[in-house]
Structure formats: structure tokens, C-alpha cells
Simulated assay, not measured.
Amino acid sequence: MLRHDLRTLWTEPRPPGAPARVRRDWALLAAGLAGVALEAGLREHVVWRPVAVVFAVWLWLLPLWRRTRPLATVTLAFGSVGLLAVASFVAGQGEPVGLYTGAVVLVLVYALPRWGSGREIMLGGGVVVAVGTLCVAIDGTPVVEKVVGLVFLLLPGVLGAAVRFRMTARERQLEQVRSREREQLARELHDTVAHHVSAMVIIAQAGRVLAGADPSAAVAALEGVEEEGARTLEEMRAMVATLRDRGVGAELAPPAGVADLERLVRTPGGRLSVDLDLDGELDALPPAVDAAVYRIVQESVTNALRHAVDATELAVRVAAERHTVRVSVRDNGRRPGRGRDGYGLTGLRERATLLGGTLRAGPGTDRGWHVEAELPRARSENGVHTRPRR
């Protein structure tokens, strides 16, 4: 078991999306160099002052590469710390060489498990433990202080690992939300296609019965089959995920759409006054777009009920234009905290993207929370928006 866990850790890749440098890195470097200058100028009894200053500047430069080269920065920093500790010990210095601002190495200890791969974490962790053990071994402080110092050195690494685990868990949950949204969209498309195919079969059977007695009725039946087949092909082109296995005897029912919004907005009751405005031709929307409009409004209304503090009004507007459908949901409440997107909004954004549209959610200019979505009425096989069939 332990061997398997170690092998799994060794093959763990780096977390994606690590930025090379951001603005706060340069601010941190400027503050660190200013601290080195102040300590070197104001502090008395600095052992090997020129060496200590150069060494501190070197340590403050290394964090610039802590995300892209975590193992290299830890190795260089702690390797130089170990060499300087051995040199001072051989020279018989009673006090450690270096400035207090050299504590910036703790940032590198944090960055190693936060941004490194499993191989880098294990190798870099070995370097940190080895150098830390060496330093406390040649130091003349009591044993308790040595243990406390070693624990203090490793604590940022534990914090970095915890942050990485938390972010990885959130990314995994977000991916599950996206996957469920793709699956739900695929099921809705599957149900729609099944309805079309069932209609084609019935029309074809009727045409075969009437072919001998009424040829014109057979021709009309063939035209109906052609129309249903064209609609089916349009929906099949929108398939974006693998269909989930359905149970035997599962009912094929069309998903809720724009026609169900009136019933949906009556659900909040007396707490929120919901103003629903439907504009344009919304009766001939493709089923996938129709269901997406309903899901966007449903999730937005639910979020307003759960998170909008002191909200009294909710404005829902769905407008159908020539090639697009625009959905807008706005409340007049306030959102405590940072207002980060939840998993529901993540799923809606994924659905809008799959359909070739966009969705934006965030605080309004004055107050409240706004959800704005733009969906194409239809799209062709290569993704170019087209006008739907009439």
C-alpha cells in the first residue's frame, strides 16, 4: 500500500495554469530588497556582513521562478543555505551567518507542494529535510528549539499541500458539473430525436397503407418523413456528449422549455415579485435552446431565492431575435461575500458554450445580481449560425 501511494505521488503531474509571474511577485521582490537594505544598514553585529547581504539578495531573487521551477529554486536556495552553514561551522562562527530577511525561503517551501509535480515534491522535500536537519544539528540551540525550528520550516509546505488539495478538489467538482451538464443536454437531445424518429415511423406506416388507394396521400406522407428527418439531422448535429444508458421503459418526455416559464416564475410565492417578459417568436426554438433558456431562468431564480439578501423584485426577460435568443435575469438584492460562481452557474455556462452561445453572471452596476445569456437559434454542422427551419 505504501509503495503504491509513493508511486502515485511520484507520477503526479504539476497543476495546470501556473502563472509564471504576476504583479505581486515584483511587489514582493521590491519589499524584500528594501528589507534587506534596512536590516543590513541598521542591524548591528551581522556576521560576515557582505556575504550575508549578497546571500539575502540571492534568496529574494529565487521566488520569481517558484511556480515554473519549484524544484530548482528549492535546491538552489537550500543548497546555498547548507553550504553557508557548513562554512560558518568550519570557520568556528558562534552565530549563524545571514539576515533575518532570509526567511523568504519559507515561500519556496510553500511553493514546492503547491506548484510542483510529485517527483519534484519528493526530491525537493528531501533537500529541505536534509538541509534543515543539518542546520539544527550543527546549531548550538537546545533540542526543543531545534525541533520547533524544523517544524516551523516544514509548516509552509503543509499549507501549500492543503491549498493544492483544496483547489484540485474544486476543479474536480467543476469538471463533474460540466460532465453532468453535457450528459443532461445529451439526454434532452436524445429525447427530442426519439420523438422525431417515432413521428417518422408513424407517418411512413400511414403512407404505406395509403399508397395503393391514394397516391397523393403517400406523397404527402413522404414529405412529412422528409421534414421530420431534416429536423432530426439538425438536432443530431448538436450532439456533444455520449448518451447515458437509460433504464428499460424510461419515459421519453420533452424537457421543460419557454412555455413552462409562466409556471416556473409563480413558484417563488410572496417573497419575490417576478416580472416575466417574453418578446419575439419563441414557439419555434430548437429543443436544445428551448431547454437551455428554461434552465438558465430556473437556476437564476433559485440563486436569487437562496443568495439575494433583501431582494424584492426579479426581472426575467427572454427576447427572440432573428438569429439569437437573449436571456436576462436581474434581481435587486445584494450578495454577501465574494460572489464567486457556484456549480450551477458553471453548468449553465458549459451548456451555453456547447450550444455556441455565451453566459455572463455578476453584480450589477448599482446593486443586485445579473445573469445575461445569448444563445444561437440554430447552428450548422461546422458551427456557423443558421436560420432555423419554419
Results as ranks from 00 to 15, higher is better:
Val151Cys: 06
Pro156Ile: 01
Pro156Gly: 04
Pro156Arg: 01
Gly157His: 05
Val158Met: 15
Leu159Tyr: 14
Gly160Leu: 06
Ala161Ile: 04
Ala161Lys: 05
Ala161Tyr: 03
Ala162Val: 14
Val163Pro: 01
Phe165Val: 14
Phe165Lys: 13
Met167Trp: 06
Met167Asn: 06
Thr168Val: 05
Thr168Ala: 11
Thr168Ser: 14
Thr168Cys: 07
Ala169Met: 10
Ala169Leu: 14
Gln173Leu: 15
Gln173Met: 10
Gln173His: 12
Leu174Lys: 04
Leu174Val: 06
Glu175Leu: 10
Val177Ala: 12
Arg178Lys: 10
Arg178Met: 06
Ser179Val: 04
Arg180Asp: 11
Arg182Asn: 07
Gln184His: 00
Leu185Phe: 00
Leu185Pro: 04
Leu185Glu: 08
Ala186Asp: 08
Glu188Met: 00
Glu188Val: 00
Leu189Met: 03
Thr192Gln: 01
Thr192Leu: 01
Val193Arg: 05
Val193Gly: 01
Ala194Ser: 10
His195Val: 10
Val197Leu: 07
Ala199Pro: 01
Ala199Asn: 03
Ala199Trp: 00
Val201Ile: 08
Ile202Phe: 00
Ile202Met: 07
Ile202Gln: 14
Ile202Leu: 10
Ala204Pro: 11
Ala204Leu: 05
Ala204Thr: 04
Gln205Pro: 00
Ala206Met: 02
Leu210Ala: 13
Leu210Arg: 12
Gly212Arg: 12
Gly212Ala: 15
Gly212Asp: 15
Asp214Thr: 13
Pro215Thr: 14
Ser216Arg: 15
Ser216Glu: 15
Ala218Leu: 13
Val219Trp: 11
Val219Asp: 15
Ala220His: 09
Ala221Met: 15
Leu222Ser: 13
Leu222Cys: 09
Val225Ser: 14
Glu227Gly: 12
Glu227Tyr: 11
Gly229Ala: 15
Ala230Ile: 14
Arg231Cys: 09
Arg231Asp: 15
Arg231Thr: 07
Arg231Ile: 03
Thr232Gly: 12
Leu233Pro: 02
Leu233Cys: 02
Arg237Val: 13
Ala238Trp: 06
Val240Lys: 10
Val240Leu: 05
Ala241Trp: 08
Ala241Thr: 03
Ala241His: 15
Ala241Phe: 03
Thr242Leu: 06
Thr242Gly: 14
Thr242Phe: 08
Leu243Glu: 13
Leu243Trp: 02
Arg244Met: 04
Val248Asn: 01
Gly249Leu: 10
Gly249Gln: 00
Ala250Ile: 01
Ala250Ser: 09
Ala250Met: 02
Glu251Asn: 01
Leu252Ser: 12
Ala253Ile: 08
Val258Met: 09
Asp260His: 02
Leu261Gly: 10
Glu262Ile: 01
Glu262Asp: 15
Glu262Leu: 06
Arg263Gln: 13
Val265Trp: 07
Thr267His: 08
Pro268His: 04
Pro268Trp: 04
Gly270Met: 09
Gly270Lys: 11
Arg271Lys: 07
Arg271Trp: 05
Leu272Phe: 06
Ser273Arg: 15
Val274Ile: 07
Leu276Glu: 10
Leu276Asp: 13
Asp277Trp: 00
Asp279Gln: 12
Asp279Met: 02
